[in-house]
């Protein structure tokens, strides 16, 4: 099923020399990054990063260790402020925004090293994700006004609904920190989804998962995209997952984009092969 999806997506050029799926070409791209760069005391961690992601695209960001992939995520979520370039989310410039504002614009993420609220229950973790979706004030909360009961009920129902994407509704009252590793990764995705994003950034979602779990995750990511009609961008080292579900793939090395294209194009690209495997000795001379 996943294999089919990849082969049927036709990628078309998009202004600012990027590509998006054909079905998204007349829609506003969810992300447009132009000439994005950040320096840490003279070290250029990311330089001249250009990327466009279509409204319902599943995009991949790959590259060797230390290439700057997570730094790109931190830039897109405004954990770091870029030293150059612009990021447009749903057509809005994010200059000067912080992480909270970026999230409200529609960027949600998971973390490479899981950052759940470990002491709290699974449901509470999702409820925290619903923070801005089902709001009520401190006053209603303390004095248990009717709004509190109404919104709490709504949060509860919505949380279980979201957990059911991964069939986790039965663990709702378990402590998040006591879940198995794979379930924690899935819970992080649910928490990110709870913020009602238009772009979901997944940082190594399959890390620590067995092949069977990875297979399920691939189906879930596609199901999430179809159900919520959102774009997904993922960093992953598992090439089976990346080549299986990603429509547009961007390869990063030493903070620079060295290739962009579909899975076939990336697999054949000599620069990418060189970045991953190195150059043959006779070619190097």
């Amino acid at each position: 099923m996943t294999q089919q999806r990849r082969s049927t997506t036709k990628m078309v050029p998009f202004p600012s020399h990027s590509i998006v799926p054909e079905r998204d070409v007349d829609k506003l791209p969810v992300l447009e990054a132009r000439h994005l760069g950040i320096e840490f005391g003279g070290l250029k961690a990311v330089e001249d990063f250009n990327l466009t992601i279509g409204k319902t695209e599943i995009a991949g960001l790959i590259g060797p260790n230390g290439a700057g992939k997570t730094t790109v995520f931190n830039l897109l979520t405004k954990v770091y402020q870029p030293t150059s370039g612009t990021i447009m989310i749903n057509g809005k410039d994010t200059a000067g925004m912080n992480t909270v504002q970026a999230n409200k614009l529609g960027v949600a993420r998971t973390f490479q090293n899981i950052r759940l609220f470990g002491n709290m229950s699974v449901e509470d973790n999702v409820r925290i994700g619903l923070h801005n979706q089902v709001p009520y004030g401190m006053f209603s909360g303390i004095f248990r006004l009717p709004r509190y009961w109404k919104q709490e009920k709504k949060q509860h129902e919505r949380a279980l609904e979201l957990l059911s994407i991964f069939g986790m509704q039965d663990m709702a009252s378990a402590k998040a920190g006591s879940l198995p590793y794979g379930a924690q990764r899935r819970l992080e995705i649910v928490r990110a989804l709870a913020t009602n994003p238009s772009l979901l950034l997944l940082d190594e979602p399959a890390a620590g998962m067995n092949p069977h779990e990875t297979e399920e995750l691939m189906d879930s990511i596609i199901a999430i995209r179809d159900q919520f009609q959102i774009a997904v961008m993922l960093i992953e080292h598992d090439m089976k997952l990346v080549m299986g579900i990603c429509e547009g793939i961007c390869v990063l090395n030493y903070g620079r984009v060295i290739a962009k294209g579909t899975a076939e194009e990336i697999q054949k690209n000599p620069t990418v092969i060189e970045a991953y495997l190195g150059r043959r000795k006779e070619d190097a001379q």
Partner: peptide
């Protein structure tokens, strides 16, 4: 009542992981 409400959960979220709390749109 504060602890068992939306605001209380947000307060505890900020305590447990600042970065994660910000990433889900909580004003720390």
């Amino acid at each position: 009542n504060l602890i068992n409400s939306r605001s209380g959960r947000a307060i505890m979220a900020c305590r447990d992981s600042r970065i994660a709390a910000e990433s889900v749109g909580i004003n720390i």
